[in-house]
Every structure is written in structure tokens, then in C-alpha cells.
Design a protein around this nucleic acid. Structure first.
Length: 326
DNA sequence: AACAAGCCCAACCGCCCGGCA
DNA sequence: CTGCCGGGCGGTTGGGCTTGT
């Protein structure tokens, strides 16, 4: 779309490349979106945080539904737009898998012309929509929590029986059931070329996950060279887990295979999780999923990266930006 | 085939709001 | 109370794509 360019501060703008997408996906699936502004630096991206956030929310996150809008979806948009006005994010909560941006585009490009004259909304009903909106915070959270649907949310699990877009990034094979908190695979899983690494992991994950009980197999976490960012005492996994944004979700999920520990991050996180101290537990990171911090010239998924190199955790741990952990 | 016009949508921009110190 | 920070949101735009001539 937009021609890549750089602004005065050296940040890249314009169309995202596949490589940038890979970096962002790899980083967010492992670490979540703890702080959008800081994230690009640690994900090896020369983008502003806002741009990363937008790219993730509108394009890369799981459960994004792409392709043409169905008649039913269009009806819903028209109806809700009559009711709510340009509250695209609110409307989006009624259309699982659709982003506010996509709905907005659909309205401006197609629906407005067809129904715009009919669906004139007044200031009054917009106001009413604001104060009386039937969309609860929970509904909003369900679509905003890192792009994942809250397990308590009424939002349905997304199924994509119709018009799948072969180019879409469907990581929707992970379905957060409202009752069992388990994973199920979706035979229709489609991955864009270049993301098969996630596909492969999801398959393996499915084989290695038990839903019976919570079981943490890790022992005491070493400080890994990061000192005092979370207290001076060595932390136990229980502490991390208790403080983890994941702790309130999918507590029945057991990751038996540490190799896929990074996929824990693909689960919903609490609203404030990004504000919490960032814990870089590199012991769980398979090298091939690490995102390089410094050297961008090499392959990002190369096994040549050592976790401690990535996070500057060897002898030069003092190089680590300690502000990140404050 | 070549060109123009319009369509479409990813991405950007600027403002707003909530949380926090 | 106030100012700062960071995410959310709605409006707008750039440019590739499609369609019409």
C-alpha cells in the first residue's frame, strides 16, 4: 500500500513487510503486548509503537476474519450504525473477527453509498449510544484484550465456514472455549506463507497439552543476569505465575512441553498486564522463536541466536535497558 | 493495449481518556 | 489537583487494484 518511508526520528512508516510481520508476531506471541511504545525496540522493529499496535490489532492478531462481509454482517453494521453512529469499535464487538477499521472501511466504501441516506443518525442517538450502549465493558474487553476473546465473553468462538481468505493469518485454530478452556484444532486452519512455524507449533501444542489440571513443571527461575528488576530474591515459578497475566486465564491448561511455553502468551492477558514489570524468562524460549535485539541482518528465526545474546544477558548484562524492568 | 477514474483498504494522524505518581 | 504516559478511537489519506472507455 503505502510506500515505505522514514520520518525525522528514523522510524519506518508505510507498508509492513513480511519480515516485520514475522518479528511482531513472534514477539507478541511470546511476550504479549506489555508496552507498545517499548515493544518495537525489543522486537527489533524500527516502527513506532502505535504502528505496531495497529498492525497487530488490525491484521496480525489471531481471530481476524478477512474477506468479504456477509449479508448478515452488513445488516448488523447498518443496524448498529443507525443505533450507535460511528462507534466502530462498539460495532466491532458485535462482529467477531472483524476489526473496527475494517468495519469503518466497509461502511465508507460500500454501505454508506447503499444505505447511508437511510441510516442518518442524529447527535441525540449518538449520545444515547454513548450512555446507554448495551455493549458492556466486558464486551469491549473481549475484543480488546490483546485481540483475544475473553473466555467469559458472550462473543462466540469464531468459525469460518464461508469465504476463507487464503492469505489470512488464521491462528484461530486456538479456540478459547467458554466452558472448558481447552484448545481445539481447526481443520480449516490457514496460514500465510511464512507463518507455518506457528502452524507447526500449534499442531504440536495440541498434542502436548493436557487440560486436566494446572501443573507447573518448572523449578526455581534463575535471575538470568537480570538483577533487581523484580526484587532481589530469586523468583520461583509460582511467583511468576501468580503475577503473570496468564494466571487468571485458562488455569486448566497444562503445557507439558516447555518448548511451547512461549505459546502461553497467545492466551488472553489482563487489561493491565502491559504495565507490569516485564519478566524475561529466557529459559523457556526456543531459540528459533527469539527475536534479535541488536543484529537485524541475520535471520530472525535462526537457531544461531542464543537467548542470552538476544537479551544481552551474558557478561554484558549491564547493557540491558534497565528502565524496561522498572 | 493504454489510459483514466473510481474503488478499496492498510496505515497514519490527532485527539481523547484513564491510570498513575 | 495536575501533568505525564500510553492505549483507544474515529477520521483521513496514499497508493495499489479494478473497471470502464
Amino acid at each position: 500500500m503505502r510506500t515505505p518511508s522514514w520520518d525525522s526520528s528514523g522510524l519506518k512508516k508505510g507498508t509492513w513487510t513480511q519480515e516485520e510481520d514475522r518479528k511482531l508476531v513472534a514477539y507478541v506471541t511470546r511476550y504479549g503486548t506489555w508496552n507498545w511504545r517499548q515493544l518495537p525496540r525489543f522486537a527489533g522493529l524500527t516502527r513506532c509503537g502505535k504502528s505496531c499496535r495497529l498492525r497487530w490489532l488490525n491484521y496480525l492478531r489471531p481471530n481476524i476474519k478477512r474477506g468479504n462481509f456477509t449479508e448478515k454482517e452488513e445488516e448488523t453494521i447498518i443496524k448498529l450504525h443507525e443505533e450507535l453512529g460511528n462507534k466502530w469499535s462498539v460495532i466491532a464487538t458485535h462482529l467477531p473477527g472483524r476489526t473496527d477499521n475494517e468495519i469503518k472501511n466497509q461502511w465508507h466504501t460500500t454501505l454508506k453509498k447503499r444505505f447511508g441516506k437511510k441510516a442518518v443518525h442524529t447527535k441525540t442517538n449518538v449520545k444515547a449510544a454513548k450512555s446507554n450502549s448495551s455493549v458492556s465493558n466486558q464486551d469491549k474487553d473481549s475484543i480488546q484484550n490483546n485481540g483475544f476473546f475473553h473466555e467469559d465473553s458472550p462473543s462466540p468462538t469464531i468459525s469460518r465456514a464461508s469465504d476463507p481468505d487464503p492469505l489470512s493469518l488464521e491462528v484461530s485454530s486456538i479456540e478459547f472455549s467458554s466452558t472448558t478452556s481447552d484448545y481445539t484444532t481447526n481443520d480449516n486452519l490457514l496460514m500465510e506463507e511464512g507463518f507455518d512455524f506457528l502452524y507447526a507449533c500449534l499442531e504440536d501444542l495440541n498434542q502436548n497439552i493436557s487440560t486436566e489440571s494446572l501443573h507447573i513443571s518448572h523449578g526455581t527461575i534463575q535471575n538470568n543476569g537480570i538483577e533487581n528488576f523484580h526484587g532481589s530474591d530469586p523468583m520461583t515459578m509460582e511467583h511468576v505465575w501468580a503475577e503473570s497475566p496468564l494466571s487468571s486465564y485458562n488455569e486448566n491448561v497444562v503445557v507439558e512441553n516447555d518448548d511451547f511455553g512461549f505459546l502461553e502468551a497467545i492466551q488472553p492477558i489482563t487489561e493491565n498486564s502491559w504495565r507490569e514489570a516485564f519478566v524475561a524468562d529466557t529459559s523457556l524460549i526456543p531459540n528459533e522463536f527469539l527475536v534479535p535485539l541488536v543484529n537485524e541482518s541475520e535471520s530472525y528465526f535462526s537457531s544461531t541466536y542464543d537467548a542470552r545474546d538476544i537479551w544481552c544477558l551474558r557478561d554484558n548484562s549491564h547493557d540491558l535497558d534497565v528502565n524496561l524492568f522498572q
